[in-house]
């Protein structure tokens, strides 16, 4: 594939930090059905250890390895005939194990995917079933999920071994509102946050299960999603996206917002809005935050990347000749952006 470099060129704003996305590889999944998610995982086998790409469509999940020939070779494929795949659930720091969420309109199953060298077969054991509102993989081989709604909501942290076997289940005190999304807190491993359907930000102690704070944000859009939180100097900095914002004015309706929260007083303030550069239109559809980089697929089919430290859009990736982008994910190494299209094509860009 020809190298394809895209960077923002704006001579007016000299101070703007420009990023560069350079295409390094293309993977074409031949499943024939609509692509639903993509991710990366370190995979160790008898004859190789490599950072592999995981592609998910509704009926199957495939693991891909970059071969010396420059092509991508399928390592394993897991098939799902009863319940469709909704998303890949990244498991930070975990090797040779993939987690997927399956269901119809909402998640009804969470499964681990791995390969058993004992019998030479791929396995897909069930980890959890129910009306699952949100799920997130945490550091140190843990998985948090919320089931049910309102008074009947159960929030649970599931610890697992290297082989994916259950070790321990810890209940977290449920909030009165339904959880929409969880996020880890960088710099505070035992803290967990979530955003609820009524735009309350909830803080837990993961070790004790205590609900420490519930903070109504009040100034955000209903249905916002929390992606990441950073703890620093007694404050929490939380990155939110707004999938339901209006498209009309991207400056008023940014793709991401950073809010600052004082957990001690339960007071919060809007800190930074991550909007599109002038002349670029589109509304946030979906995306991911990793380290200090945030990537979003816009309704226009373009992917936009922001630097959270500088608060600026650093790169834009317009649709290519094959079509619009539908997925944007950071690799586990932070340095690559995986850009996916509905037909199962995955383009890998190095981001500098």
């Amino acid at each position: 594939e020809p190298l394809n470099e895209v960077a923002i060129e704006d001579p007016v704003e000299d101070s703007q930090r420009k990023g560069s996305l350079q295409m390094t590889s293309k993977l074409k999944s031949c499943s024939g059905s609509c692509s639903v998610d993509v991710g990366t995982v370190w995979w160790e086998a008898a004859d190789f250890t490599a950072l592999c790409v995981v592609t998910a469509c509704e009926a199957s999940v495939s693991l891909w390895r970059h071969l010396e020939s420059g092509h991508w070779g399928s390592v394993h494929t897991w098939h799902f005939t009863k319940v469709p795949v909704i998303q890949i659930v990244p498991l930070p720091g975990v090797q040779s194990l993939v987690c997927v969420a399956l269901g119809g309109l909402e998640i009804s199953e969470i499964r681990f995917l791995f390969y058993s060298s004992e019998d030479g077969c791929v396995k897909q054991p069930l980890v959890k079933t129910g009306n699952i509102n949100a799920v997130l993989g945490l550091k140190n081989r843990r998985l948090v999920s919320s089931c049910g709604s309102l008074q009947h909501q159960e929030v649970e942290v599931f610890s697992f071994s290297e082989t994916g076997r259950s070790k321990e289940r810890q209940a977290l005190m449920p909030p009165e509102e339904t959880v929409l999304a969880f996020a880890e807190v960088d710099g505070m491993q035992e803290a967990l946050i979530a955003l609820t359907t009524t735009d309350c930000l909830v803080v837990w102690n993961l070790t004790s299960g205590q609900l420490l704070r519930k903070v109504p944000l009040g100034f955000s859009y209903l249905g916002s999603v929390c992606h990441k939180a950073y703890s620093d100097s007694g404050l929490l900095f939380v990155v939110l996206s707004h999938p339901h914002a209006e498209e009309s004015n991207s400056c008023v309706n940014p793709a991401f917002q950073v809010v600052v929260l004082n957990p001690k007083t339960a007071r919060s303030a809007r800190l930074m809005s991550l909007s599109l550069p002038l002349g670029i239109t589109g509304r946030y559809l979906e995306g991911e935050v990793k380290g200090v980089s945030a990537a979003a697929v816009l309704t226009s089919g373009t992917i936009a990347v922001w630097d959270l430290f500088w608060g600026q859009c650093t790169a834009l990736l317009p649709p290519n000749s094959e079509g619009s982008w539908s997925l944007a994910r950071w690799s586990v190494t932070d340095t690559c952006l995986l850009a996916g299209q509905k037909d199962g094509s995955v383009y890998i860009y190095s981001y500098t």
Partner: peptide, 23 residues
């Protein structure tokens, strides 16, 4: 943001809230 916007800040908020919150 000044401290007056967000109220007094505590570096040890996590331990302090954990000692106050019901188990």
């Amino acid at each position: 943001h000044s401290e007056s916007d967000l109220g007094p800040i505590s570096i040890n908020w996590f331990e302090e809230l954990s000692s106050e919150a019901p188990l």
